[in-house]
Amino acid sequence: MANTAVADPNSGVTRAQLAQRHGLRIAGERPPLAEYTRKLWAYRHFMTAYSRAKVASSFSNTQLGQLWQVLTPLTNAAVYYLIFGVIISQNRNVPNFIAYLCTGVFIFTFTQSAALQGTSAITGNLGLIRALQFPRAALPITVTLVQFQQLLMSMVVLAGIVLFTGEPITFRWLLIAPALVLQSIFNVGLTMIMARIGSKVTDLKQVMPFVLRTWLYGSGVLYSVKLFEDRLPGWAATALESNPILVYIELARYALLDSAYPEHIASSPLRLWTLAVTWAVAFGLGGFVYFWRGEEEYGRG
């Protein structure tokens, strides 16, 4: 076959040399990290527009539409009130258990949905990926932006519940803002990690519910965190108390619930903030680098 070895019969250069001479690059090559970050920043308008569009379309098939953004967390809280406040009617020694529980549930849901929807951040957008070239990291970031908007809604509901159950407004309430920002950074990193793994391992989606259920029980959402210290050996309790979701839940409870601090927060505020920053930086940076290293693989296969 003539077409395999021959390059440019006239000048005697190979095709690779010809490509190099004219500055052609290998198709689908991954740009260096700094250039990639710059490109990503240039796509900020795309990310905000895409997340707004996703929020707008997420309830487009329902009659009540956007109202569900508030109704979903409210219904959630109502169910927990019914089970733990009326039926079981035990507060597990936590004063204001309903508010304690709802804070845990809402904060946990934020990271849970990051992990769940992260797995489909790439696989759910294959059409877009295969048609257009843009930094793929824009997709997991968009997922987090959508969830952040939903989180803000549930925070409004939570504030209502907390006040309604008789908690005072203190200056500590201001701390909820940095706590949520740190959790969001952690979530972006987690979403990127899940997106890369999920793009390769299509079975991950089937396994995630089990992992998340375990994580739920290990995060002190449904009971007092102090329970770990009472029931588990010291090293296990310490390990569980360093678990990122538990750290962010404790921070939110520390900020919003005057009745829970200090009796029902296992760690000191200093330890909580240190851990929260550490987890955010480690996952934010680590997740981004991990995702970037897989850039040329997305959309293939």
Binding site: R15, A16, A19, Q20, H22, G23, L24, R25, I26, A27, A53, K54, S57, G127, L128, R130, A131, L132, Q133
Partner: peptide, 17 residues
Amino acid sequence: VYTLGQPSLLGVNAALL
């Protein structure tokens, strides 16, 4: 495969949203 810039592929099933 060497390319100048980034080629864009336009297929029938390149669905948007």
